[in-house]
Simulated assay, not measured.
Amino acid sequence: MVLVLDGFLDAGNAAAHAARHLAELHVSPTGPGPVVATFDVDQFHDYRARRPAMTFVRDHYEDYDAPRLVVRVLRDTGGTPYLLLHGPEPDNRWEAFARAVREVVERLGVTRVVAMGSVPMAVPHTRPLTITPHANRPELLVGSSPWRGELRIPSSMQSLLELRLGEWGHDMLGFVAHIPHYLAQLDYPQAAAALLEQVELAGRLTVDLTDLHAAAREREAEIETYLAEHADVAEVVTALEQQYDAFQRAEESGASLLASDEPLPTGEELGREFEQFLAGLDGPDGPSDERPDNGPGWS
């Protein structure tokens, strides 16, 4: 079962875009794959924190985008069936949601859960995209982690679910893509494609990524065009590249991780520069990405 919970762990809409891509590959007259389980959204969703969209037409309301969290049956390009659990991350009752997912896993005979996520990082888009693999058993890991030592991080429903499923004897692994923080508010299909490539390996599935790769090339061209026209923003990206390369050289040599003559721009400097960057890419004169629908007990 592939798992994506929109919200906290989804910089660049990478995971949500990947989940939407999986569903769209299987669109039929009855929808993108039959629903085999649903969760009671009212038990988990904070409507005032994440208000669903509605349409107002002249003098009446219509087209309420109700949040949904469902499990669908999909098939990969080779015909292999798998499940997709997708919707908004629960705002509350995490332990109850974990128990509900456990019931789904056990009732439907799920042998492995594979999660996707993404986080903003101080990395340039011109360098290889990095992914952190994780799992509740070492034998499940597909690749090696770029991290060393112990980190204290904010929790998410996906991370808690991996912990709880492991305690209950069920396998779960996942992948977190590192998104350039100045692109975290944009749709970043490069990362969506990279995540699905890992899902193919972990879930033994085959996925047609042609459309995602095409979207990634278009986004890359948009970014490069913007940088070519805005030297001040390009300078900040160059500074990130220098810092990134210095870090990589230090890692390889075992030396200090900081370059003495290549300081990283401050958060305020980056913020000022990339407010303009985001406005240029996603403003009135730039491309506008359609945001995915937010959609989450088990029935």
Rank of each mutant, 00 (worst) to 15 (best):
E95A: 15
P128H: 05
T206K: 15
A214Q: 12
S253V: 01
A96F: 12
L196F: 01
R249M: 13
L3V: 09
E106S: 15
A228P: 02
G87N: 05
R93Y: 13
A246P: 06
S118R: 01
R272I: 13
D42F: 12
H213M: 02
M1H: 05
V27T: 11
G267D: 15
Y82N: 07
P296N: 11
E197L: 11
L22V: 06
R137K: 14
L196T: 01
T210V: 10
P120C: 05
S253K: 06
G295V: 11
F56V: 14
A246H: 10
A18D: 06
R152A: 05
A19Q: 02
I179W: 01
R72I: 06
A14Y: 03
A115Q: 02
Y182Q: 03
A221Y: 06
V70I: 01
L140F: 10
A216D: 02
A228T: 12
R137F: 11
F44C: 00
V71D: 10
G166N: 10
H213W: 13
Y82T: 02
E200P: 04
T210R: 14
E241C: 09
A53E: 12
T30E: 15
A49K: 11
R68D: 09
G143C: 01
A14C: 15
G143R: 13
N136D: 08
T55R: 08
P263C: 09
A18I: 07
V114M: 06
R51A: 15
Q248I: 05
Y47S: 05
L165F: 04
E167H: 13
G203Y: 04
V2P: 00
P265W: 01
H21S: 06
T238M: 08
I179G: 00
R272Y: 11
A192D: 03
G87R: 00
E89V: 09
A193Q: 06
A239D: 12
R58E: 14
A221G: 07
D6K: 06
V142A: 08
V176F: 08
G169H: 05
D187R: 14
L278I: 07
S156G: 12
H178F: 12
L25S: 13
N92V: 15
G7K: 02
A37K: 03
P265M: 01
T126Q: 04
D245S: 12
